[in-house]
Nucleic acid binder design. Structure first.
Length: 297
DNA sequence: AAGTGAACCTGAAGGC
DNA sequence: TGCCTTCAGGTTCACT
């Protein structure tokens, strides 16, 4: 579900309610998601002030004035929503106890003092592949979920040279390599397909074939790097994609799904005019890949 | 090492 | 209407 652009959109949606706010109450409605909640989660959160809400790869990082950072992952079906006084929020009455309760509300935070005023932040996740983990903020970069992550495709860290180093000698299919969060972080099934379409590169090509013998990037890799950065930037700009149950924190939709060129478009004409090809769906390591076999070589 | 398939879980959609 | 199968944006683990 949420790939980098969706997670970034969630972060921006939560910021007005959370930035500088104090958590006055926290409630987990079950003991675990994909992993058990940190045993002292509610106590660590209650009474703490939010220092920052940032993002690394597909993780949200919620840091408090107690030097705690909570690593939040949305899995496949996770979403956050914000309720305020205008939506009948009553402090101390948790979402799962109110008329606005929804199935699969798993974590509820009452916050005050943010830009949005008193609010309730509710994490909902039907499939429960998401998780909440705890780290001391000073040790965050060494946390197993964070250490080893590859460069972000946003900002200026990603470059053809860095990717060349990560892909050199790899015989794995290019698609699988780009899904590997140690190579580059934040890409998922949709945006890998989209980037490969734009770069006109086959998802089946050997990843190492984009690196010259001397370890420098080929022109194909330079092209791919630009396409990855471009598709991610455009998707963030559009507020991410809204598929199935995914919504922004205010319930509205992202729009990037209207810009998909190949994802979930089997049998459609190839988007790379004037290529006469047709989008095909294949399965690679158990997951759908959409691409045009005619122009993606 | 590389590749595949299964597992974790629920719900939506399509076929019959 | 209802039952059944398949599939889904992620990640990890076991196996060949």
């Amino acid at each position: 579900m949420p790939e980098l652009p969706e997670v970034e959109t969630v972060r921006r949606g939560l910021l007005p309610a959370l930035d500088g706010a104090t958590i006055v109450a926290a409630k987990a409605t079950r003991p675990d998601l994909r992993f058990p909640f940190p045993p002292d989660l509610e106590a660590r959160l209650t009474g703490s002030q939010i220092v920052s809400l940032s993002r690394r790869a597909k993780y949200l990082l919620l840091s408090t004035d107690r030097a705690d950072t909570f690593i939040l992952h949305l899995g496949m079906s996770g979403s956050y929503r914000v309720e305020t006084a205008s939506t009948r929020f009553t402090p101390g009455v948790f979402a799962h106890e109110r008329s606005t309760a929804r199935a699969h509300d798993h974590l509820i935070l009452d916050v005050e003092g943010g830009q949005a005023g008193a609010s309730q932040i509710i994490y909902n996740d039907p499939r429960r592949f998401g998780f909440v983990l705890h780290a001391r903020t000073c040790a965050l970069s060494a946390h197993p979920m964070i250490a080893g992550l590859g460069p972000e495709p946003t900002g200026n860290t990603l470059s053809p040279d860095i990717l060349a180093g990560a892909l050199s000698g790899k015989k794995t299919p290019l698609k699988a390599a780009l899904l590997d969060q140690r190579v580059i972080s934040g890409l998922g099934n949709i945006y890998v397909c989209e980037a490969l379409s734009r770069a006109k590169l086959s998802p089946r090509r050997q990843a190492g074939s984009l690196v010259k013998k001397d370890g420098t990037p080929t022109t194909r890799l330079v092209r791919l790097t630009a396409c990855i950065r471009q598709v991610i930037a455009e998707a963030i700009e559009a507020g991410g994609s809204s598929l199935r149950d995914h919504r922004q924190t205010d319930g509205s939709m992202g729009y990037f799904q209207h810009s998909f060129r190949v994802y979930d478009r089997e049998h459609a004409p190839c988007p790379n005019a004037p290529c006469p090809g047709t989008v095909r769906r294949i399965v690679q390591s158990g997951r759908s890949t959409f691409f045009c076999p005619t122009c993606q070589r």
